[in-house]
Design a protein around this nucleic acid. Structure first.
Lengths: 340, 340
DNA sequence: TATGTTCTGATGTACGTCAATCAAAACACG
DNA sequence: CGTGTTTTGATTGACGTACATCAGAACATA
């Protein structure tokens, strides 16, 4: 079971090590028939090139850039510190990580950040997308320069991005509805929804999934028009408080974006009996889960997402396959009893 | 930002490369004061040794052995195929993985497997523990030989194992109770519990967590004595069917072990209105979730667990730190709406 | 001071691949 | 058949670390 090296392949194919190397790095100067013979020998011997030795010899290093929201939500604050943490962890794998935090909800800011970086973006970019044509165009330009691009947290389909690293947001919305449906014992009532912004695709998709299930399975519940909280706790609290004060029929609440602290403050003040599902795992939501103010929190693991984005970008650069099971970002459901 | 090499450290410390090397691999023959000077230089320059180059030079290869249950449950069948998959994925990292499947619920079989392997266990073992002194002793003997040991899926505390790779089973039980508590709308009733075996610590712990929450928060619900299904669908179905037939007060069910197919068959036949939480994600539980026969499934990701065990064992061998966030095995909650 | 012991430097080989060179062989074409 | 071009072989020096060897320096002890 000894490792099979390029030298072994060379002998098996009846060529020299140099030729194997040329094939391996698809360099020109090898006859087509010889290429085939070498490839045949490679998978007959089950050869896998030693990426570590290759990188060592090449002196190769990867450089990736994260473009994320500078928003004040607990979630993005976590994301940013996870990126910092990852920077250190992968440094000995010859991976450099850069980060640019841009004002939230501003498509042009993303584009400006990309342009501003120029060549410094490196080999790949992970960006929190915002629904906008200028962003789509910027992604296309990056790809045109050979830079690999993945969207991160919030996707922008129909763009040139090679992959989306994040959760299935429609499913997250559906689960939230499925939970609330089972949590709410009242025979009828209204359900409130608090989101961040309509240009964040992840929010829109969660809302969509939530409505799908509510419409189909909960004829006894009415979903109210959503509140746009702009990811700001203050705004969320003010708007939600007003809504709760004016409607005593509300029996459930789904908060699908940032500013969850505002949600907690509002429902605590309202003293209504509500079943509540939110996002974001912060000290505030933990306390609210424990006190029973909220019932469940649906989150995505920032640490996993950052690691995944880096691994995926590296795989694209190496032309290596992606381990789908490892890169599946989970919708995690926390209740009081399984807080980490 | 160029990489700092051992050569740089040598120059900075005013010693030769050979001495740095001796310090790095704590080989003898270096004066204490010199060791300190080298170490000081290492973290002044922020030196991290290139593990890839080190392994390359060493020609080091790791060999780990998984000792798992040969049980027929969907979960263990997944575990075994994930181990096979991992074997291929890590082969180019110079990691060899062996696997021995032993008859379930049999402590002596585990010990025999370990003894039978002799030196072939390699550098580390991941084993699905069973509560038993002979297993504890076997682990201690392995550790005595310098073999690293982690328990896997089911733990055996107070043993010499260096770590447990798996979920927090008490928390899993608590979450199951927390969900059922919210799912059950009936004002009162009985709750049935189906487990595998009393010598599987993971089952015992889940049961414990479940009872904790039920006792504390659900005075209106009575938890019935558990059914031992021996991880066999047939046994589970037979015992559960009998229970359901004899008790029309049952409003909820928690199945915390294997043989979930038996649970599904039994409740389907009984035609009672039950809220059900189970484990194991298989075609049967998927179908039951979709049809609404069961409400939620609590699972652990076999693929993640296998990767984690390998990474953790490798970290022990290398004396490297463990990335706790990456190794946190999640309790995943699947409902109809977030099936992967 | 002589002797033995402990430390340190200098050097070389190895690991598996990359990248470049130069020379030799095979081929194509008129 | 000669010429030019393409393909191949052989060789070499990196990359960063491990490990072994040998000689010399520093130190301790008598």
């Amino acid at each position: 079971m000894a490792r099979v090296t390029a030298q072994d392949v060379a002998e098996a194919a009846g060529v020299s090590l140099a030729t194997v190397d040329r094939v391996l790095n698809n360099r020109k100067g090898v006859r087509e028939s010889t290429v085939e013979r070498v490839i045949e020998a490679m998978d007959r011997l089950n050869f896998v090139r030693d990426q570590a030795a290759a990188n060592l010899a090449r002196g190769r290093s990867y450089r990736f850039t994260f473009i994320v929201s500078a928003g004040e939500t607990a979630f993005f604050s976590d994301i940013r510190s996870e990126i910092e943490a990852a920077r250190k962890n992968v440094a000995n794998d010859r991976i450099e990580i850069g980060m640019v935090a841009v004002p939230p909800l501003d498509p042009q800011a993303i584009v400006d950040a990309i342009v501003g970086l120029g060549e410094k973006v490196g080999d790949g970019v992970a960006l929190v997308a915002v629904e906008s044509q200028v962003v789509r165009d910027a992604i296309a330009r990056l790809r045109g320069r050979g830079v690999h691009v993945v969207t991160f947290i919030s996707d922008i389909p129909n763009s040139a991005r090679e992959r989306f690293v994040g959760i299935d947001n429609v499913a997250a919305g559906r689960v939230a509805a499925s939970l609330l449906k089972r949590f709410i014992h009242a025979p009828s009532g209204d359900v409130a929804v608090v989101a961040g912004s309509g240009i964040l695709r992840d929010h829109v998709e969660r809302r969509l999934g939530f409505e799908q299930v509510m419409r189909a399975e909960c004829p006894h519940l009415t979903v109210l028009p959503w509140i746009e909280g702009e990811e700001l706790a203050g705004v969320v609290e003010e708007k939600l408080s007003r809504l709760l004060a004016g409607n005593r029929e509300i029996v459930g609440l789904y908060s699908l974006g940032g500013g969850t602290r505002g949600v907690i403050d509002a429902i605590r003040a309202a003293k209504q009996d509500l079943r509540v599902v939110t996002t974001e795992l912060s000290e505030h939501t933990r306390a609210a889960l424990i006190s029973g103010a909220i019932d469940a929190v649906l989150v995505q693991d920032p640490s996993h997402e950052v690691r995944s984005a880096v691994r995926v970008l590296k795989a694209f650069v190496d032309g290596a396959p992606i381990n789908e099971k490892q890169e599946r970002i989970r919708i995690e459901i926390f209740m009081r009893d399984n807080l980490p």
